[in-house]
Simulated assay, not measured.
Amino acid sequence: MRKILVVVDMQKDFVDGALGTKEAVSIVPKVVEKIKSYDKNDVIFTRDTHQTDYMQTQEGANLPVEHCIEGTPGWEIDENIKALSEGATIVDKPTFGSTKLAEMIKDIAAKEDIEIELIGLCTDICVVSNALMLKAFMPEVPISVDSSCCAGVTPDKHDAALETMRSCQIKVY
C-alpha cells in the first residue's frame, strides 16, 4: 500500500516568522527526518497563500496578522525544509483546508490503495482542517497524524485538535 505524506504549511511565517512559536521551531528536525523517510513522489507540501489584500479578507479581520503573503520570505517553505520540497508537489491554498489537495489525493486513491499521514502547522487550524477534509473525501482511506511533527497555536489547542481528529477516526500517534 502506498503511503502519502502531507506536509502542511511548514512556512517561515508559521515556524519563526509573523505567527511562529517555540513549539513550531522545535518540531523542524523531526519534520525533516519524517520527510526524508518518504519517497519524494509520495510527499505533498501545502503552502498557506495570501495576497496583499489579506487584511481586507474575512480571515484577516479575524486574524489581523499579515502572514504568508505570496512571494514574501514568510511565504517560503522553512529554510531547513526547503531543499526537501524541491521537485515535490506543492499545493498553494488560500484558506485552512484545501479542496484541491483532497481532490488530488482522491484521484490517487481511485487508482491504488493508499494511506495518508499528515504533519505540520498549525495542528488546530490547517492540519485539522485538511485531515477532516481528507476523511470526508475518502472515509475508507486510513489517515494518521504524527503529533510529534505538529505544533498548534498553543499547546492546549494542539491537544484539543488531536482529540478532535481522534474522535473523527483519524489515527493520532
Results as ranks from 00 to 15, higher is better:
V128D: 08
A83Q: 15
T49S: 14
P142T: 00
D78A: 10
I119P: 02
M55P: 04
V32N: 07
E76H: 11
L121Y: 04
I125A: 08
G74A: 07
H158D: 13
T154V: 10
K93A: 09
M133Q: 05
S37Q: 02
S147K: 12
D124S: 07
G71K: 05
L101S: 00
T89L: 07
V145T: 08
V91T: 06
Q58H: 09
D146E: 07
A151D: 04
T99V: 15
L63M: 13
D156W: 11
T123F: 05
I81E: 15
L132G: 03
A88F: 03
L121D: 07
S144R: 03
P73I: 02
T95C: 09
K106D: 07
H158C: 03
T72W: 06
A110Y: 05
V145K: 10
A102Y: 04
T57F: 01
K157V: 01
E86D: 09
E79K: 15
T99L: 15
V128P: 01
K93D: 04
G74H: 04
V91K: 06
S144P: 00
V145F: 11
H158W: 03
P64D: 01
I108F: 08
F96W: 14
I90Y: 08
L118F: 00
T95K: 14
D39E: 11
I114M: 07
N41P: 05
N62G: 11
T154K: 05
K34M: 12
M138Q: 00
E79H: 15
V91C: 10
F45M: 12
A110Q: 15
D92K: 12
N41R: 11
K111H: 06
L63A: 05
K135G: 03
T95D: 13
K40F: 10
T123W: 02
I116E: 00
T89D: 05
P94I: 09
C126K: 08
G152Y: 14
H50C: 14
P94V: 11
D78T: 03
E66K: 15
M104W: 06
L118Y: 01
T57L: 10
E86C: 05
I81Y: 14
V65R: 12
M133K: 10
I114C: 02
S148Q: 06
L134M: 08
L134E: 02
S85T: 05
T99C: 11
Q58D: 14
